[in-house]
Design a protein around this nucleic acid. Structure first.
Lengths: 211, 211
DNA sequence: CAATTAGTGGCACAAATGTACTGACGGTGT
DNA sequence: ACACCGTCAGTACATTTGTGCCACTAATTG
């Protein structure tokens, strides 16, 4: 559901101010327009009257590994230096003892395949019954639709709709012809319900918490 | 750090098979190349010998609200209708009692602005010292670089590097000229260190857990 | 059957566009 | 002083590319 890239040459060479100015403008343009500008548009944006300086900067940016494009084809420029491609994974951080300091990029966290997954949806969690599974009140859970509830592994966290009552987030178990929905909080008793009255809307794929 | 879109014209009109074929090819091309193809590329991909049919399909796709582009400019096509825009937020799910069933899309979870944020990085959590904050062993934490540690709010969760020892995830507090790093687990004692020996590498922006 | 609409092939053209070449200016380091 | 490099202006050119037009076919609709 989530993938890692370990390629990405990781641009290191420093840029001249002109090169950096162009790169930053490119980043903002592409961010807002979702496609690359043409060389002459870059020229105007930089306040120049000739495409040659832009070509020069682009060549240098390419040599330093910040951008790339397809020769001869219009508006095919891509940024390589970082954002839009994913979030760099810098390594492991200790939550407990101390581990060695990290410095360079090991791999890249790419959320895009997740966004492409067909049918995925999200829900905001309301309540604390899953607190032992470290799903907190206010967290956003990403759910994948479930076609065949019969194939669910026992204990999978699902969003289940109980007939006529509502939807709830619980651990899913089968118990004979019944379905048992268990909270992850001793304060809540398990629900034991007939299978026909339970519709599993999706299973938990990821937990998202903004701070 | 995270944003919601409620616009999205939501294309409704149905497509002919030729239109749908083109649209799907466009989606896959843009996904892999990160820029739009030219009309003649579409022509070849569709096995045609003339650009006119493509123009026709594009016009129809535009009228039906699936795509848009900037007139006269090469490769400026954008897809409007789809799954690359975000994850639909279907509402709230109870973790405790039961709430009303959800059915239609309320808003849209867009992770893209997060990917665009300059300098963001990710770390894999190793250990259980932040367990009371519901950050589990193996979770991925997204961190935003911190320029001025002096402005950090007390209690912010940070990745802090202690001179000569390593990096750790802790609650950040100031205590006179010292810095106190507190775990979220009673089994770990707070660290009290001189401010000069602590480098805050970033503050916690989000927690990500794949299941 | 007639009318409408979408699709197709072929062609043409103007505009957009990437690229190359020349010359010049201003720094920087030798 | 000299060479080197990045920057800039101006120009030129071949290609790419969006668009328009015409005629024909196929499917759909009334």
């Amino acid at each position: 559901m989530i993938s890692f890239d370990s390629d990405s040459p990781a641009p290191q060479a420093t840029l001249t101010s002109a090169q950096q100015e162009l790169y930053e403008w490119l980043a903002s343009y592409i961010d807002s327009h979702r496609h690359s500008p043409s060389i002459r548009q870059m020229m105007e944006a930089m306040g120049l009257r000739s495409p040659a300086p832009i070509q020069s900067r682009l060549r240098h940016l390419q040599q330093k590994g910040w951008i790339t494009w397809q020769e001869g084809q219009a508006r095919t420029l891509q940024l390589l230096g970082g954002h839009l491609q994913g979030i760099p994974m810098l390594g492991t951080v200790a939550a407990g003892g101390l581990v060695e300091p990290f410095d360079d990029i090991q791999e890249r966290l790419d959320l895009q395949p997740l966004l492409d997954t067909r049918g995925l949806f999200a829900l905001t969690v309301n309540g604390d019954s899953m607190i032992a599974a470290h799903i907190d009140d206010g967290d956003v859970v990403l759910m994948e639709p479930v076609n065949e509830p019969s194939r669910l592994k026992a204990g999978t966290i699902v969003a289940a709709m109980v007939e006529g009552r509502g939807t709830t987030l619980k651990h899913f178990h089968r118990q004979g012809a019944m379905v048992r929905l268990e909270a992850a909080n001793p304060a809540y008793a398990p629900l034991l319900i007939e299978a026909e009255q339970v519709a599993v809307q999706g299973k938990l794929v990821a937990v998202w918490r903004q701070v």
